[in-house]
């Protein structure tokens, strides 16, 4: 398989805390890789390393054979990897269109660069925000702002898109639409790694799933394999963790994390716009 994105023994320590500990992974061209794990497992930190915003303590991440970790975020973007933020970070006083245009102008040069506004509007159209182009991000709903976060990242023309909990916190209907959108993004040729707590979302759309717990990779495989993995079941159910989905029994067809409840516990922090 042609691996587009490769993580080689990535470690990220914050002082004594091993946020990411010796994690290796691959992402194939046109693949969707789900990244799950309890709170504080190190998922977002792994994204930050892969996107170049935070240097790795050890190990590295390669995109198409070229290192993307350990540089500054903007250089990784130019190489073709772009991340979204778990807590959305729109440019609050720029219009929705301007937000997307920033991504367009400063991202990876690609097709459509002669006509910035057309390109940006095309992306907004695809993402479902075209009629909001001249509003401010603050006027959008949370779902809208999450869409904007993805649209801005898409405008940079990424080969690999890192989505950090874009479905969490949405109503089931919105979540369903968003999952459809993610699939379409992949079909348009962007490979995706997605962090998600909403299990049916991530399990339904991912080709493969990787599970982190306390910074370590405890399982990796197809969604079906992963939900049956004893260590995964233990990570989600066996301990007195803060994971809110522990009322589900692993006997369900969907696995231990069958019904991800988007409105529960950990996602509350999403709502007030920090």
């Amino acid at each position: 398989m042609s691996a587009l994105l490769v993580g080689e023994s990535v470690c990220k320590y914050f002082g004594g805390l091993r946020a990411v500990d010796d994690v290796s992974f691959t992402l194939g061209e046109g693949e969707i890789l789900g990244l799950i794990g309890p709170n504080g497992a190190g998922k977002t930190t792994l994204f930050s390393v892969a996107a170049g915003s935070v240097p790795a303590t050890r190990g590295r991440v390669l995109l198409d054979g070229k290192q993307v970790s350990g540089k500054s975020g903007h250089r990784s973007v130019h190489q073709g990897i772009c991340r979204t933020h778990q807590i959305v970070r729109p440019f609050a006083r720029l219009s929705v269109l301007d937000n997307v245009l920033v991504g367009h102008h400063y991202g990876r040069p690609g097709p459509g660069h002669g006509r910035p506004v057309d390109h940006a509007m095309g992306i907004l159209d695809f993402i479902g925000l075209a009629d909001r182009a001249h509003q401010l991000p603050g006027e959008l709903t949370l779902a809208g702002r999450k869409r904007l976060e993805v649209a801005r990242a898409l405008a940079t023309g990424p080969r690999v898109l890192l989505l950090d909990e874009v479905v969490a916190g949405l109503t089931p209907v919105e979540a369903q639409r968003f999952v459809e959108l993610i699939r379409q993004i992949r079909d348009r040729g962007t490979s995706i790694v997605m962090i998600e707590h909403v299990m049916h979302a991530v399990m339904g759309v991912s080709d493969r799933v990787m599970v982190l717990d306390h910074g370590r990779q405890i399982a990796e495989g197809t969604p079906e394999q992963v939900v049956k993995h004893p260590q995964v079941i233990e990570a989600y159910l066996g301990r007195d963790d803060d994971e809110p989905n522990d009322h589900d029994e692993p006997t369900h067809g969907d696995g231990p994390m069958g019904a991800g409840d988007p409105a529960s516990g950990q996602h509350a922090k999403e709502k007030p716009d920090a």
Binding site: G73, V77, H85, R89, V102, A155, T156
Partner: peptide
């Protein structure tokens, strides 16, 4: 940081 994450070199 968000600017840097979409390719702007601050």
């Amino acid at each position: 940081e968000a600017a840097s994450d979409v390719g702007v070199n601050p």
